[in-house]
Amino acid sequence: MRRALAGEAPAFSELVTRYQRAAYLVAYGVTRRHEDAEDVAQEAFLVALERLEECRDPHRFAGWFTTIVKNRARNLLRREHLREGEPIPFHAPSGMPGPERDAERAELRGRLSEAMAELSPLQREVVLLHDLEGWKHREIAERLEMPSGTVRSHLHFARRRLRDLLGSTQEPGSEGSKP
């Protein structure tokens, strides 16, 4: 972080590589829109770079940065007056082989997105960071500044709710899910 502070591009590049997915997922947990989450995550990196002096402790960068992402996402929601339950456009990315596979992935994504909409923003954030980004309970607790037990509780109820909503027959994302 100190090297990024001095404007060293490789150092900042490393920070981006390490936290880009987490930034997107945290933003997605708030906005529930792919495009918004993408914009918020990108802007958050630029804001973080401009304000890097404000992060006194390099060891707490993740928590500090996560707060920036969340605040930007909430501001975006306020600006755009997005309402809970609004449909989530999740376009299949270009370059995927075959229209049938595109459709299948889009359907999976759509079902997951709809189920995610039923969770609270905090539950979304916790379950995405844990089950998709692979952060540990302790890391989530530190970075979101909440007790570890609260993280476990949110994760437990989020998973249970998602399983109820998605049903036992569906296996969403049986490919591409990272541990």
Partner: peptide, 15 residues
């Protein structure tokens, strides 16, 4: 509890 397979929510899913 096993992790939920949330891979499709990753923008890199299929990309």
């Amino acid at each position: 509890e096993p992790r939920l397979p949330l891979g499709p929510l990753d923008p890199a899913f299929g990309d």
